[in-house]
Design a protein around this nucleic acid. Structure first.
Lengths: 219, 219
DNA sequence: ACCTATTTTTAGACAAGTCTAAATATTTTA
DNA sequence: TAAAATATTTAGACTTGTCTAAAAATAGGT
């Protein structure tokens, strides 16, 4: 199955978003992740469904098929191995490699990534601590983290909410934080465990009560 | 200047072909090199001319502008450094890396290729012996070779003809050899210096008189 | 249950890059 | 130098992936 870069990016996005949402991902969530419009997502979802890479019923959200998931994991594997290469061999900093790995992960080759893995001596984690799937697509998931345990300077994506009570969700709305939001921890106050974070729309201060109720994934 | 992969491929093709043809390259030659149709080439040439990457007057062929040439050389630099990486670090054979380097050369980054170059300890030549342009685009050209001096198993592209006499050209026509043709030397007979070569259309035997009149570039 | 707000899908359009077929230049040949 | 052959360009169409605007479906609030 030969996929375009765009198709691969959709699969990868659905894969990352599927964690939080019990495997069903909405059109809007994907469009936010890929910075496209919902209508574009619908179009692409149909193509992916035609190729049996996603399950799709109108208005019901999408999930990856077994084949789609396998491909998504392969892309994650490539991404993370390239990140290791960039940091360990080319002396990049761990916070500089994401964009580059986004390009490198789409290089097509039967053999390249396995040779790269051997060259890197079979690393188990990428520079951000995320597990690297093996050749067969097996991946040792580490549990989701709470925003409260993200360190200064690290960035993460919101992938879930622990306390899904209404007032809490409303409050998150007000902060313009939603699933898929990118957050960067600027600093943490030790006396009350509040943190200053950067969002797409600006810097805000977050109490510990909030930060320990947000599932995030480091990026 | 942010170029698409396709645009970069056109520039690279024009660059390689420009050697033989006193810098002017014909539409047909480009279309052969890129395996597209001449009409597609005309379309793209116009776009490149709009961006001042090529000089173009209808029916007169194209040549690279200074900017276009600079970009082309950068791509060559990337291509060759990636080839060194694949052969020296990932244990690929020198004849397996071209396709992969064709993909890797299009990775966009301000810093990547210089870091890669340092990691590889500033190689001067790629695995096929071709010179690697430096950071500033300076490239130490090695002279064109004659087909007669290509070794067994090596592949090359015809980039020029020394004896441009009519009968010779006619003969080349009959052999279906033209500028841009890919040739692979299968074997050489020591008693008469003839060689068996593989072309796109089949295997043919070539006398030394022919092979020493064809300028080629190894690939 | 019904009305409203939100989400999702559809329809039609656009840009990039390609193609075929036809028209126009150039080059070759005689 | 004029006809024939070849090369190049134009015109119109197609594909992929995107967008906007409008229509349809779902979800929420009372």
């Amino acid at each position: 199955m030969l996929l375009s870069q765009t198709e691969e990016n959709y699969l990868k996005a659905i894969y990352s978003l599927a964690y939080a949402n019990s495997n069903k991902v909405s059109t809007t969530l994907i469009s936010a992740a890929l910075k496209t419009k919902a209508s574009s997502v619908t179009d692409m979802i149909k193509k992916l469904a035609d190729k049996d890479l996603v399950h799709y019923k109108k208005y019901q959200g999408v999930s990856l098929t077994e084949v789609g998931q396998k491909i998504a994991v392969e892309i994650v594997r490539k991404h993370r191995l390239w990140e290791v290469f960039l940091v360990n061999k080319l002396n990049y900093n761990w916070d500089e490699v994401h964009e580059l790995a986004e390009q490198l992960e789409h290089i097509k080759s039967e053999t390249l990534i396995d040779k790269l893995e051997a060259f890197l001596e079979f690393p188990k984690h990428d520079p951000h601590g995320d597990p690297i799937p093996d050749k067969n697509g097996n991946i040792e998931h580490h549990k989701n983290m709470m925003l409260s345990s993200v360190e200064n300077g690290e960035s993460c994506v919101v992938i879930g909410i622990k306390d899904s009570s209404d007032p809490f969700l409303k409050f998150l709305d007000k902060l313009q934080i939603q699933l898929g939001s990118n957050l960067k921890v600027v600093s943490k106050e030790s006396f009350d465990n509040s943190m200053l974070i950067e969002t797409a729309t600006g810097s805000i201060s977050i109490s510990n009560q909030i930060s320990k109720n947000l599932f995030v994934k480091k990026i």
